[in-house]
Simulated assay, not measured.
Amino acid sequence: MEPVVILVRPQMGENIGAAARAMLNFGLTEMRLVDPRDGWPNPRAIAMASGAAGKVLDHARVFPTLAEAMFDVDYAYATTARGRELTKPVLTPAQAMQDGRARTAAGGRIALIFGPERAGLENDDVARANAIITVPVNPDFPSLNLAQAVLLVGYEWSRDALPPEPAPHGRRPDGEATATRIEIEKLADHWEERLDAAGFFFPAEKAPAMKLTLRNLWSRLPLTRADTRIFHGMLRQLIRKAD
Protein backbone atom coordinates (compact mmCIF):
# COMPACT_ATOMS: atom_id res chain seq x y z
CA MET A 1 0.00 0.00 0.00
CA GLU A 2 1.38 3.40 -0.96
CA PRO A 3 2.10 6.11 1.63
CA VAL A 4 -0.40 8.84 2.39
CA VAL A 5 1.00 12.31 1.60
CA ILE A 6 -0.30 14.90 4.08
CA LEU A 7 0.21 18.61 3.38
CA VAL A 8 -0.30 20.57 6.58
CA ARG A 9 -1.73 24.08 6.18
CA PRO A 10 -0.43 24.57 2.61
CA GLN A 11 -0.53 28.22 1.60
CA MET A 12 -0.39 28.43 -2.19
CA GLY A 13 -2.52 26.50 -4.65
CA GLU A 14 0.39 26.37 -7.10
CA ASN A 15 2.49 24.49 -4.56
CA ILE A 16 -0.28 21.98 -3.94
CA GLY A 17 -0.53 21.36 -7.67
CA ALA A 18 3.24 21.02 -8.02
CA ALA A 19 3.27 18.57 -5.11
CA ALA A 20 0.59 16.52 -6.88
CA ARG A 21 2.77 16.35 -9.98
CA ALA A 22 5.76 15.27 -7.89
CA MET A 23 3.64 12.58 -6.25
CA LEU A 24 2.42 11.12 -9.52
CA ASN A 25 5.97 11.06 -10.90
CA PHE A 26 6.59 8.26 -8.43
CA GLY A 27 3.21 6.57 -8.30
CA LEU A 28 1.83 8.28 -5.20
CA THR A 29 -1.83 9.22 -5.50
CA GLU A 30 -3.32 9.72 -2.03
CA MET A 31 -3.10 13.34 -0.91
CA ARG A 32 -4.62 14.71 2.26
CA LEU A 33 -4.79 18.43 3.01
CA VAL A 34 -4.95 19.88 6.51
CA ASP A 35 -6.63 23.29 6.70
CA PRO A 36 -5.40 24.72 3.37
CA ARG A 37 -5.08 28.49 3.66
CA ASP A 38 -7.10 29.37 0.55
CA GLY A 39 -9.74 26.67 0.94
CA TRP A 40 -10.47 23.77 -1.37
CA PRO A 41 -10.80 23.12 -4.28
CA ASN A 42 -8.23 25.61 -5.52
CA PRO A 43 -8.16 26.52 -9.25
CA ARG A 44 -4.47 27.44 -9.11
CA ALA A 45 -3.62 23.99 -7.82
CA ILE A 46 -5.60 22.40 -10.65
CA ALA A 47 -3.84 24.55 -13.24
CA MET A 48 -0.39 23.68 -11.87
CA ALA A 49 -1.17 19.95 -11.69
CA SER A 50 -1.31 19.99 -15.49
CA GLY A 51 -3.24 17.07 -16.88
CA ALA A 52 -2.74 13.60 -15.46
CA ALA A 53 -1.71 14.83 -12.01
CA GLY A 54 -5.14 16.41 -11.71
CA LYS A 55 -6.48 13.02 -10.66
CA VAL A 56 -4.43 13.29 -7.46
CA LEU A 57 -6.23 16.53 -6.66
CA ASP A 58 -9.62 15.11 -7.68
CA HIS A 59 -9.37 12.56 -4.88
CA ALA A 60 -7.61 14.76 -2.32
CA ARG A 61 -9.33 14.83 1.07
CA VAL A 62 -9.45 17.82 3.39
CA PHE A 63 -9.25 17.63 7.18
CA PRO A 64 -9.41 20.36 9.82
CA THR A 65 -6.54 18.93 11.88
CA LEU A 66 -3.49 16.75 11.39
CA ALA A 67 -4.76 14.28 13.98
CA GLU A 68 -7.92 13.70 11.92
CA ALA A 69 -5.91 13.36 8.70
CA MET A 70 -3.91 10.56 10.34
CA PHE A 71 -6.98 8.51 11.29
CA ASP A 72 -5.77 5.28 9.64
CA VAL A 73 -1.99 5.81 9.82
CA ASP A 74 0.20 3.39 11.75
CA TYR A 75 3.51 5.21 11.39
CA ALA A 76 4.29 8.75 10.22
CA TYR A 77 7.38 10.62 9.05
CA ALA A 78 7.51 14.41 9.47
CA THR A 79 9.74 16.32 7.06
CA THR A 80 11.63 19.24 8.57
CA ALA A 81 15.00 20.93 8.07
CA ARG A 82 15.11 22.60 11.47
CA GLY A 83 16.57 21.12 14.61
CA ARG A 84 13.98 20.00 17.13
CA GLU A 85 14.05 19.53 20.87
CA LEU A 86 11.78 16.53 20.39
CA THR A 87 13.45 13.15 20.83
CA LYS A 88 12.72 11.17 17.68
CA PRO A 89 14.66 9.17 15.12
CA VAL A 90 16.09 11.52 12.48
CA LEU A 91 16.45 9.86 9.07
CA THR A 92 17.49 10.77 5.55
CA PRO A 93 14.83 10.26 2.86
CA ALA A 94 16.56 7.03 1.78
CA GLN A 95 16.69 5.65 5.32
CA ALA A 96 13.12 6.66 6.03
CA MET A 97 11.69 5.08 2.91
CA GLN A 98 13.64 1.89 3.40
CA ASP A 99 12.04 1.71 6.83
CA GLY A 100 8.67 2.69 5.37
CA ARG A 101 8.74 -0.04 2.74
CA ALA A 102 9.43 -2.62 5.44
CA ARG A 103 6.53 -1.35 7.54
CA THR A 104 4.21 -1.36 4.54
CA ALA A 105 5.26 -4.88 3.59
CA ALA A 106 4.31 -5.94 7.11
CA GLY A 107 0.81 -4.54 6.60
CA GLY A 108 1.20 -1.08 8.12
CA ARG A 109 0.02 2.24 6.72
CA ILE A 110 2.57 5.05 6.63
CA ALA A 111 2.22 8.79 6.11
CA LEU A 112 4.61 11.45 4.83
CA ILE A 113 3.89 14.79 6.45
CA PHE A 114 4.95 18.11 4.89
CA GLY A 115 4.54 21.53 6.45
CA PRO A 116 3.45 24.93 5.16
CA GLU A 117 5.75 26.81 2.82
CA ARG A 118 6.71 29.73 5.02
CA ALA A 119 7.83 28.10 8.25
CA GLY A 120 7.37 24.35 7.90
CA LEU A 121 5.85 22.08 10.49
CA GLU A 122 5.29 23.28 14.02
CA ASN A 123 6.41 21.24 17.00
CA ASP A 124 2.82 20.23 17.68
CA ASP A 125 2.72 18.70 14.19
CA VAL A 126 6.07 16.95 14.53
CA ALA A 127 5.03 15.55 17.90
CA ARG A 128 2.35 13.49 16.14
CA ALA A 129 4.92 11.79 13.88
CA ASN A 130 7.04 8.81 14.82
CA ALA A 131 10.19 9.92 13.02
CA ILE A 132 11.72 12.94 11.30
CA ILE A 133 12.99 13.11 7.73
CA THR A 134 15.74 15.65 7.11
CA VAL A 135 17.37 16.04 3.70
CA PRO A 136 21.18 16.40 3.86
CA VAL A 137 21.57 19.64 1.93
CA ASN A 138 23.86 22.68 1.99
CA PRO A 139 23.76 23.86 5.64
CA ASP A 140 24.00 27.47 4.47
CA PHE A 141 20.78 27.07 2.50
CA PRO A 142 18.76 24.10 3.78
CA SER A 143 15.33 25.26 2.62
CA LEU A 144 13.41 23.20 0.05
CA ASN A 145 10.11 24.21 -1.44
CA LEU A 146 7.12 21.96 -0.90
CA ALA A 147 7.18 20.19 -4.27
CA GLN A 148 10.94 19.58 -4.06
CA ALA A 149 10.54 17.89 -0.69
CA VAL A 150 7.69 15.72 -1.96
CA LEU A 151 9.73 14.81 -5.05
CA LEU A 152 12.78 13.75 -3.05
CA VAL A 153 10.87 11.56 -0.64
CA GLY A 154 8.68 10.15 -3.42
CA TYR A 155 11.75 9.17 -5.41
CA GLU A 156 13.22 7.32 -2.45
CA TRP A 157 9.93 5.52 -1.88
CA SER A 158 9.74 4.30 -5.48
CA ARG A 159 13.41 3.83 -6.37
CA ASP A 160 13.30 0.03 -6.20
CA ALA A 161 10.40 -0.01 -8.65
CA LEU A 162 11.93 2.48 -11.09
CA PRO A 163 13.40 1.42 -14.48
CA PRO A 164 17.04 0.26 -14.43
CA GLU A 165 19.69 2.95 -14.16
CA PRO A 166 21.06 4.39 -17.40
CA ALA A 167 24.19 2.74 -18.76
CA PRO A 168 27.42 4.24 -17.42
CA HIS A 169 28.64 7.16 -19.51
CA GLY A 170 30.63 6.06 -22.53
CA ARG A 171 29.45 2.44 -22.58
CA ARG A 172 26.31 0.77 -23.87
CA PRO A 173 24.47 -1.96 -21.94
CA ASP A 174 26.12 -4.60 -24.16
CA GLY A 175 29.57 -3.37 -23.07
CA GLU A 176 30.52 -1.70 -26.38
CA ALA A 177 32.29 1.64 -26.04
CA THR A 178 30.12 4.50 -27.28
CA ALA A 179 31.50 6.59 -30.12
CA THR A 180 32.78 9.99 -29.05
CA ARG A 181 31.42 13.22 -30.47
CA ILE A 182 34.64 13.72 -32.46
CA GLU A 183 34.41 10.23 -33.96
CA ILE A 184 30.83 10.86 -35.05
CA GLU A 185 31.81 14.27 -36.46
CA LYS A 186 34.57 12.68 -38.53
CA LEU A 187 32.17 10.02 -39.78
CA ALA A 188 29.66 12.69 -40.79
CA ASP A 189 32.42 14.66 -42.54
CA HIS A 190 33.54 11.57 -44.45
CA TRP A 191 30.05 10.74 -45.72
CA GLU A 192 29.22 14.36 -46.53
CA GLU A 193 32.45 14.71 -48.53
CA ARG A 194 31.83 11.57 -50.57
CA LEU A 195 28.14 12.22 -51.12
CA ASP A 196 28.97 15.75 -52.25
CA ALA A 197 31.48 14.39 -54.76
CA ALA A 198 28.87 11.93 -56.02
CA GLY A 199 26.35 14.74 -56.65
CA PHE A 200 23.95 13.60 -53.96
CA PHE A 201 23.21 17.11 -52.67
CA PHE A 202 21.07 18.34 -55.54
CA PRO A 203 19.74 20.85 -56.40
CA ALA A 204 22.32 23.28 -55.04
CA GLU A 205 19.80 25.49 -53.21
CA LYS A 206 18.64 22.51 -51.13
CA ALA A 207 22.14 21.27 -50.34
CA PRO A 208 22.57 23.15 -46.99
CA ALA A 209 19.29 21.76 -45.61
CA MET A 210 20.10 18.25 -46.81
CA LYS A 211 23.54 18.39 -45.19
CA LEU A 212 22.03 19.65 -41.94
CA THR A 213 19.48 16.84 -41.92
CA LEU A 214 22.15 14.22 -42.56
CA ARG A 215 24.44 15.56 -39.84
CA ASN A 216 21.54 15.61 -37.40
CA LEU A 217 20.82 11.97 -38.31
CA TRP A 218 24.39 10.92 -37.49
CA SER A 219 24.32 12.68 -34.12
CA ARG A 220 21.05 10.95 -33.17
CA LEU A 221 22.30 7.43 -33.80
CA PRO A 222 23.55 5.53 -30.71
CA LEU A 223 26.78 4.50 -32.44
CA THR A 224 29.66 2.57 -30.92
CA ARG A 225 33.26 3.01 -31.98
CA ALA A 226 33.00 -0.27 -33.83
CA ASP A 227 29.93 1.07 -35.67
CA THR A 228 31.84 4.12 -36.91
CA ARG A 229 34.66 1.93 -38.24
CA ILE A 230 32.12 -0.19 -40.12
CA PHE A 231 30.47 2.86 -41.70
CA HIS A 232 33.85 4.27 -42.75
CA GLY A 233 34.80 0.88 -44.23
CA MET A 234 31.48 0.54 -46.07
CA LEU A 235 31.97 3.92 -47.70
CA ARG A 236 35.57 3.20 -48.72
CA GLN A 237 34.53 -0.12 -50.28
CA LEU A 238 31.71 1.50 -52.25
CA ILE A 239 34.16 4.04 -53.62
CA ARG A 240 36.64 1.35 -54.63
CA LYS A 241 33.93 -0.57 -56.49
CA ALA A 242 32.79 2.62 -58.23
CA ASP A 243 36.37 3.34 -59.33
Results as ranks from 00 to 15, higher is better:
74 D>H: 15
120 G>H: 04
70 M>N: 11
176 E>T: 08
193 E>S: 05
235 L>R: 14
163 P>S: 08
29 T>K: 09
103 R>P: 03
137 V>F: 14
66 L>G: 07
4 V>R: 13
158 S>P: 01
102 A>N: 06
2 E>V: 00
97 M>F: 13
225 R>K: 14
117 E>P: 06
6 I>T: 07
186 K>V: 02
236 R>S: 13
232 H>E: 12
84 R>P: 04
28 L>F: 12
6 I>S: 00
210 M>W: 05
202 F>M: 02
197 A>F: 04
139 P>R: 14
173 P>Y: 12
187 L>E: 11
8 V>H: 02
175 G>Q: 09
37 R>M: 13
152 L>N: 04
31 M>P: 05
224 T>L: 01
18 A>Q: 12
43 P>T: 11
196 D>R: 12
31 M>N: 09
188 A>V: 05
243 D>M: 06
95 Q>C: 04
108 G>A: 11
24 L>P: 07
110 I>H: 05
128 R>N: 12
146 L>M: 12
42 N>W: 11
40 W>K: 03
138 N>V: 08
165 E>M: 07
129 A>W: 06
206 K>T: 05
165 E>Y: 05
5 V>Q: 09
41 P>A: 13
52 A>Y: 13
85 E>A: 04
79 T>R: 01
85 E>C: 01
96 A>M: 00
133 I>A: 02
168 P>H: 09
16 I>L: 10
153 V>R: 01
223 L>H: 11
239 I>D: 15
5 V>K: 08
105 A>W: 06
47 A>K: 15
78 A>G: 11
92 T>P: 00
31 M>S: 08
184 I>Q: 14
209 A>Y: 07
149 A>I: 06
19 A>V: 10
109 R>W: 08
59 H>K: 14
105 A>G: 15
67 A>L: 10
39 G>I: 04
187 L>K: 07
138 N>Y: 13
127 A>K: 15
75 Y>H: 12
168 P>S: 03
84 R>N: 12
2 E>S: 08
81 A>R: 00
44 R>Q: 14
173 P>N: 08
144 L>M: 12
39 G>W: 11
225 R>Y: 09
144 L>A: 08
136 P>N: 14
10 P>N: 10
2 E>W: 03
204 A>W: 10
92 T>L: 05
103 R>Y: 04
166 P>Y: 02
69 A>F: 05
240 R>M: 02
194 R>G: 12
88 K>P: 01
114 F>S: 00
38 D>S: 12
22 A>W: 10
216 N>M: 01
189 D>C: 08
147 A>D: 13
79 T>I: 01
142 P>M: 04
70 M>P: 11
234 M>N: 03
5 V>Y: 08
9 R>N: 13
78 A>R: 03
242 A>T: 11
196 D>Y: 01
90 V>L: 02
220 R>N: 04
70 M>T: 06
91 L>V: 10
57 L>I: 10
19 A>Q: 09
189 D>G: 07
215 R>T: 06
228 T>K: 11
192 E>Q: 13
166 P>E: 02
168 P>M: 03
89 P>G: 03
45 A>C: 12
42 N>V: 07
92 T>F: 02
42 N>Y: 07
119 A>P: 00
193 E>P: 00
198 A>K: 02
78 A>P: 03
41 P>H: 14
96 A>Q: 01
